Simulated scan of single mutants.
Amino acid sequence: MTRGIGLIGATRTAERVVMSTSRGRRDITVRAVAASDRERAAVSGERHGVGVLSCYEKVVTAPDIDVVHIAPYNSAHAYWARRAVAEGRIGLVEKPLCLDLAECDEPRSADRRRLGPGSPRWSAYTGRRGERSRRCLRTRSPHES
């Protein structure tokens, strides 16, 4: 099974963590990018041979995207994490995941309601240079056979 990845935000971190990790692999592929600056998204998409979508909502609802790397401005991280989870996507979120504890509870609660306790569907970008996100992309889901 090949996992399709969509990028919310055309950032250097996304290029370093997601694009470089997926390059040359058959099990994951970056399929789309969207950014608040459409020109920056177009440049990133062209550089990496990735489709450009006009808005973040199209990334989380695209049928060929399974994983969403979330890297817009900080105050939008929690909202797009919730949207990704609501659409059944795995979310990889750049730090900070949330701006306060109340905001952090929402994606975890939505996750538990949808999948049951202990089912990971989002991960905060933590560690030096995105090691946790790279590790998540390298490993198979416990739900896969």
Rank of each mutant, 00 (worst) to 15 (best):
P107H: 11
L101S: 12
W80S: 02
V50W: 00
G116V: 05
S54D: 04
T61I: 11
R108I: 12
G45D: 01
G49M: 05
H69S: 15
P117F: 11
D105N: 13
G118P: 01
S119V: 12
V52D: 06
V52A: 05
E57Y: 04
A78M: 00
V85G: 08
V68G: 02
R128D: 01
W80P: 01
R82Y: 01
S109G: 09
D111P: 03
D66V: 06
A102T: 07
R82G: 07
P120K: 00
A110K: 05
N74D: 14
D64V: 10
A42T: 14
S75I: 08
A124T: 01
V59Q: 07
A42L: 15
I70Y: 00
G127M: 01
V85K: 05
C55Q: 05
A86D: 11
L53G: 07
G49L: 05
A102M: 11
I70M: 03
V67K: 05
Y125M: 06
V59R: 09
C98T: 12
Y125G: 14
V85A: 08
S54Y: 00
A78R: 00
A102N: 09
G118S: 00
L101F: 14
A71Q: 04
K58F: 01
D66A: 03
P96A: 04
A86F: 05
R112E: 15
A62F: 03
P117K: 14
Y79M: 13
V59M: 07
G49D: 02
W122F: 15
D111L: 12
